[in-house]
Nucleic acid binder design. Structure first.
Lengths: 226, 226
DNA sequence: ACCTGAACACCGTTCAAGT
DNA sequence: ACCTGAACACCGTTCAAGT
């Protein structure tokens, strides 16, 4: 009924560059990425209930049906959105690690807080990332790999700590599971506001998280030979 | 179209007991509880996507509209289902604590495993219990209280451990947050199959959980004065 | 009070076409 | 290849009634 969606291709740039025309798709120009971005935006604005295929298509300016050219079903779009989240998370964790002092404790505390900070600033995104219970991960290998990449940042920190004899010996992956579980659980409790934090307390969340992380570090600290 | 739903009131028991007729409601007899139970059943059978108000009403044998007499909207039913889950969880935690030996470490390990075991046997229920991000808890005081009751079991164990000088001093609630976060995170990782467990490994999950719990206990163990 | 049936707007998904 | 419009079955919610 309205013509608003029909835009002319960016005026003035009519040079038929073959490489560019290959990078850009038929009508829209990488509709897949546009749908993922629309999904992320919807999540931030309206939360998980507002995230529908039709709304994502609406924002991308295509018919409610076009998404099926890029995603088998809604699950597939959610998986792509989750994957995007894990890539951001891995990036944040890497930055935090590189910013921290050169000790295992400092790096674990900084990456731990970075994890919780990501969770607190993207709570709905986290819900998608970890809410895919029973959606078999093997059907989404790219998602699986992005999640692994984030996890591996933590494993790397622990491995280095073991090499420097700051962290107890043992499987670095097993130790990382414990650390990952701790921050994941903390993030959830804080999002749900189940953690006993005095309201209005400045930096209350960060202080609690760092306290828990330091305490948890005690459990993996190297204490010399038996 | 079918008469299957119209059942005669339990034949033979036609004594008009006033107390019973007050306990039972109009047509159905405690439709509220029936809807909650139907919701739990649907969750176990079909997961969160299958849990709809209309399906719950169908299983309870009432019109798709009757639930609105007992729940303001779908959120309210979900809150009631989550509340039911927290009551079960609190019960399981209490049993585990009473079953364990009389030491803080043993009680924390048993309640911790009980938590994860509940999560692994009711994964979809857990998703409802912890997936209500941004659904303001203050609107559901009963749910809030049920969740607190489960949490308090853990706080009690830690308080007793402090009294026996087995656990470091400090706010028992803060220490409990760390322990709760750990098991919550472990449960999520195991449900999502993100934890590196060899497939088919017997008791692999329980072994990993107990290892993490013992390690985390090291962080809160009392080690004598200064 | 408690329940029903019809109705509305919305959603995921499918299908037959259009270029 | 990529996109559209019509259609189907389903959902949450509302409303006017029925007993």
């Amino acid at each position: 009924v309205t013509d608003q969606n029909k835009r002319a291709p960016s005026a003035g740039v009519s040079v038929p560059d073959p490489a560019a025309s290959q990078a850009r798709a038929y009508h829209h120009g990488n509709l897949r990425e546009a749908l993922i971005q629309a999904g992320v935006d919807i999540l931030a604005e309206a939360g998980a209930p507002g995230l529908t295929l039709r709304e994502a298509a609406r924002r991308a300016g295509v018919s409610h049906n076009a998404p099926y050219r890029h995603f088998a079903d809604k699950e597939a779009l959610l998986a792509a959105i989750a994957e995007e989240g894990f890539r951001e998370l891995a990036h944040d964790l890497t930055l935090a690690r590189d910013r921290a002092a050169h000790s295992a404790q400092a790096q674990l505390e900084e990456t731990g807080w970075a994890y919780v900070h990501f969770a607190l600033t993207h709570p709905q995104h986290l819900q998608i990332m970890f809410g895919r219970v029973f959606a078999d991960r093997r059907h989404y290998p790219d998602l699986d790999e992005a999640a692994s990449q984030a996890f591996e940042v933590l494993v790397g920190v622990i491995r280095a700590g073991q090499a420097a004899q700051e962290i107890i010996p043992g499987s670095p992956r097993q130790i990382a599971v414990g650390a990952w579980a701790m921050v994941q659980g903390l993030a959830l409790l804080l999002i749900e506001r189940q953690a006993p934090i005095a309201v209005g307390e400045s930096n209350g969340e960060e202080a609690l998280v760092r306290l828990c992380l330091r305490q948890s570090y005690e459990g993996m600290r190297w204490r010399g030979l038996a």
